[in-house]
């Protein structure tokens, strides 16, 4: 077990990333004078209870040639939100899918899906395909392409 006062230190340490070396958990354990097995156990517990979503990488979309990014928003009737959300979540090019509150009268949309593609046309074609194949053609939607990035801090969280 890791003492409570060290748990926050460990979280802070982990939030700056995992070292890429032969024994990454041992290295973190050594830096914080902890036991390697305790650090691994802490990780497993944190994944099991959902505090940590996954351990892996965050990619730079632009460097991979994904230059276009659209936030596709939908006005889905309440009883269909779960169904449509799950359909969108299954699509390869959808990288995030969240339900959010509508803000009447300004904003009628309650389901947000992020779609990345190599160019604008590719993203639009993908959206058209997703709508058709999932039978979403009658659901009101809008497409908001990002045109400028003003600020992006470290992507530590899946927000």
């Amino acid at each position: 077990m890791i003492p409570a006062e060290k748990q926050q230190l460990l979280l802070d340490k982990l939030s700056s990333g995992l070292p890429i070396c032969e024994f990454p958990f041992r290295r973190i354990a050594e830096e914080l004078s902890l036991d390697e097995q305790d650090v691994l156990e802490f990780y497993r517990t944190s994944l099991a209870n959902g505090t940590t979503k996954r351990v892996g990488m965050v990619l730079n979309h632009q460097r991979l040639g994904y230059r276009s990014n659209a936030m596709v928003v939908w006005n889905v009737p309440g009883e269909l939100v779960d169904h449509v959300g799950e359909l969108l979540g299954r699509e390869d090019k959808v990288t995030l899918c969240y339900q959010r509150p509508r803000r009447a009268p300004h904003w009628p949309y309650n389901l947000f899906a992020m779609i990345h593609g190599k160019c604008r046309q590719a993203v639009l074609a993908e959206i058209a395909r997703i709508r058709k194949e999932n039978g979403l053609e009658n659901i009101e939607h809008d497409v908001l392409f990002s045109t400028r990035k003003f600020k992006q801090t470290g992507a530590r969280y899946a927000s």
Binding site: L14, S15, V55, Y157
Partner: peptide, 18 residues
């Protein structure tokens, strides 16, 4: 990581549980 293809490697915390 050095070339910026990966921006981060490690745990991704669920903000709603933090």
């Amino acid at each position: 990581l050095e070339e910026g293809v990966i921006t981060r490697f490690g745990p991704l915390f669920d903000i709603s549980k933090g």
